[in-house]
Write a protein that binds this DNA or RNA. Structure first.
Lengths: 196, 196
DNA sequence: CCATAATAGGACAACAATGTCCCATTTTGT
DNA sequence: ACAAAATGGGACATTGTTGTCCTATTATGG
């Protein structure tokens, strides 16, 4: 006998792994902009037949869960590359924005997800991630390089918001470079300790 | 003979005006958080039967259009109350955030709508509104009280973003007062001219 | 109090999305 | 080239939403 879903990664053939990734990439890109997109649209965006999509993710919920994990992994990878523990906290925050900027679809999806499960259940995984961002901000506040009058959670939320605005600007025609520049400049101002 | 939709406001009886408002208020509150909410959910939130909802807005598109107009009116009223042309631009921006804060659902809906019609069609109405916000920011930049290194459109987008974050904080348990305080403090930092 | 306006509630067909199968075709790996 | 794997594409029942209609009930205003 033979079960469709065994271990997600180990038993998948190279071909299946590739199409799986193609689906997930298309899905996170599409669903982050329109969470109500139909399975047919996802399949079309991924360049596969709807039947194939259902073969990989039998039900819509399966796809959504996989997209959530996929996006979380991307965010986690971006966080790791930003090395939040290295150097001045201010620079690390900027690095974090910089890395996140290239994965705005995954960021947005992860953000929506984090809102949906308000403060209900708490996966140790995700918490570890958000906690890592929080630790960075609090480190900066301890250093005195990040505004201590704003709660760390608020600053974190502002990071999502500023990144979102930058991504939206790109969608409306702004250059990626300019959007990133504005994003980072704004973030510097937000976290800067008030000296007046 | 007798047409259902004549002039929206003149021929409506007091009763119809009241229920119409109740529906629109519930709809803007619900749809701003979940644009895919069904007509049944809207009717339930408004406390009316689904048949009544369809009597006022025969098709879903009719409701959506009405909600858009309703939200735009609320935003316009808030803008008017903030008196963008009076006094220092910095204070006016803060007043604008303050007034908008109490109508976040209308703000959010208007924001989504403004994104959907990217730069395609341009209703003179809405443009007049966004133009008014823009004029305020540019006035501040001319005064030297608002950062000139950030484009006015970006600052405007940051206003939406910061207001959104504040509203989201409230949804997650933060006091309205504290959220507003954080919102205004952050906005002051964003628009402040860089002096370093 | 009474005629009229307005609503609630349900039945109904039309429609789109979903999930399940099945089979022909293409691709992969050897 | 050949067998196995993977996909494309369609048919199908199912479900939820939508839009329409009708009737009984409630609320409104003179």
């Amino acid at each position: 006998m033979w079960t469709m879903i065994e271990d997600q990664t180990h038993t998948d053939s190279p071909t299946r792994t590739r199409t799986r990734r193609a689906i997930l990439q298309a899905a996170v890109s599409l669903l982050s902009q329109n969470a109500a997109a139909s399975m047919g649209e996802v399949a079309e965006a991924a360049g596969v037949a709807r039947s194939t999509l259902h073969r990989y993710f039998p039900e819509r919920g399966d796809l959504l869960d996989a997209v959530t994990r996929f996006a979380a992994d991307e965010v986690k990878a971006a966080t790791r590359r930003a090395r939040p523990e290295d150097g001045p906290a201010t620079d690390a925050v900027i690095r974090l924005c910089h890395e996140s900027f290239d994965h705005w679809d995954a960021i947005i999806w992860t953000y929506w997800e984090s809102l949906k499960r308000d403060q209900a259940e708490c996966d140790p995984e995700d918490d570890a991630l958000e906690a890592r961002w929080n630790a960075l901000i609090e480190r900066g506040q301890a250093e005195g390089t990040i505004d201590q009058s704003l709660p760390a959670t608020w600053i974190q939320q502002m990071m999502w918001a500023v990144l979102y605005s930058a991504w939206e600007s790109v969608r409306q025609g702004t250059t990626r470079h300019e959007a990133l520049t504005l994003c980072l400049a704004t973030m510097r101002k937000v976290i800067a300790p008030r000296q007046g």
